[in-house]
Amino acid sequence: MNLPAPLLVGLGGAVGAVGRQLVSVALTGREEAVPRGTFAVNVIGSLVLAALTAASPGGDVALLVGTGACGAFTTFSSFGVATVDRLERGRWLAAALNAFGTLAACLLAVVVGWGVGLAL
């Protein structure tokens, strides 16, 4: 592509941020134990980044898709805030489900994504 690294990351980040917003709007509903939008983007992003990493494209693709798009698409901060919010409101089971459910699903997505990436 021959674009400077910050521009590649920025372009990927723009796509990832818009994608995150679209997924969040599509999946957000009533008060939930596990926020569906945040959960979905973190699981999908984990899968895509693992597949990309295992496929080892390197260079521009890694910057554009990995650092930029996946970095902006996923959201650890929203996950953390949602978990602490549930704790603050005394919803211990919802907080635990969000924390451990998200972690387990993201790790499983990494295993699956890694396998996909190695197969490419």
Rank of each mutant, 00 (worst) to 15 (best):
Asn98Thr: 03
Gly71Gln: 04
Ala105Thr: 05
Leu8Ser: 05
Leu120Trp: 09
Gly71Phe: 05
Ala94Met: 09
Pro57Phe: 01
Glu88Trp: 03
Ser46Phe: 06
Leu47Arg: 00
Arg20Thr: 13
Leu93Thr: 14
Val65Asn: 03
Gly58Leu: 12
Leu63Trp: 07
Asp85Val: 04
Glu32Met: 14
Gln21Leu: 15
Phe79Val: 02
Leu8Asn: 07
Leu11Met: 10
Ala69Ile: 07
Thr38Asn: 05
Ala62Ile: 08
Ala40Arg: 00
Trp92Phe: 09
Leu7Asp: 04
Ala82Gln: 06
Ala94Lys: 01
Gly58Asn: 05
Ala96Ile: 14
Gly113Thr: 02
Val116Ile: 15
Pro6Tyr: 02
Asn2Trp: 06
Val23Ile: 15
Val110Thr: 06
Ala96Ser: 14
Gly19Pro: 01
Leu64Met: 04
Phe100Lys: 08
Arg30Thr: 15
Pro6Gln: 08
Gly115Val: 02
Ala94Glu: 09
Ala51Phe: 03
Gly117Val: 09
Arg89Phe: 05
Phe76Thr: 08
Leu107Asp: 05
Trp114Glu: 13
Gly90Cys: 09
Pro4Tyr: 01
Gly90Trp: 02
Trp92Met: 12
Gly12Tyr: 04
Phe39Val: 12
Leu108His: 08
Leu64Cys: 08
Leu64Pro: 09
Leu3Ile: 05
Leu120Tyr: 05
Leu22Thr: 13
Ala54Ile: 10
Gly59Lys: 02
Gly80Asp: 04
Leu64Glu: 07
Thr53Asp: 11
Val43Phe: 03
Ala40Tyr: 01
Gly66His: 07
Gly71Lys: 01
Ala82Phe: 01
Gly45Arg: 01
Met1Cys: 03
Gly117Asp: 07
Thr28Met: 13
Leu8Met: 10
Gly71Leu: 06
Leu108Ser: 12
Leu108Gln: 08
Asp85Met: 02
Val81Ser: 02
Thr83Gly: 00
Leu11Cys: 11
Gly10Thr: 04
Asn42Leu: 11
Ala33Tyr: 15
Val18Cys: 15
Leu3Cys: 03
Val43Trp: 00
Thr102Asp: 03
Val15Phe: 13
Thr38Cys: 03
Ala54Met: 13
Val18Thr: 12
Arg86Leu: 15
Arg36Lys: 15
Val112His: 08
Asn98Gln: 12
Ala62Gly: 13
Pro57Ile: 07
Leu27Pro: 13
Gln21Glu: 10
Met1Trp: 09
Phe79Gly: 00
Thr28Phe: 10
Asn2Asp: 08
Val61Asp: 10
Ala105Tyr: 07
Leu52Ala: 06
Leu107Asn: 04
Arg89Ala: 13
Gly58His: 06
Asp85Phe: 00
Ala94Leu: 04
Pro35Phe: 00
Thr102Arg: 06
Leu64Val: 06
Val9Cys: 07
Ser24Gln: 13
Ala82Asn: 10
Val9Lys: 06
Pro57Lys: 02
Val15His: 08
Leu107Ala: 11
Val15Cys: 12
Pro57Trp: 00
Pro57Asp: 15
Thr102Gly: 15
Val48Asn: 07
Gly80Asn: 11
Trp92Gln: 14
Gly101Leu: 02
Phe79Met: 01
Leu108Met: 15
Glu88Asp: 14
Gly117Glu: 10
Val23Glu: 04
Ala96Phe: 14
Val61Tyr: 05
Ala5Asn: 03
Gly45Ile: 01
Thr102Gln: 13
Gly10Ile: 09
Ala26Gly: 06
Ser77Trp: 01
Gly68Ile: 07
Val81Leu: 12
Val43Ile: 12
Val43Asn: 02
Leu22Asn: 10
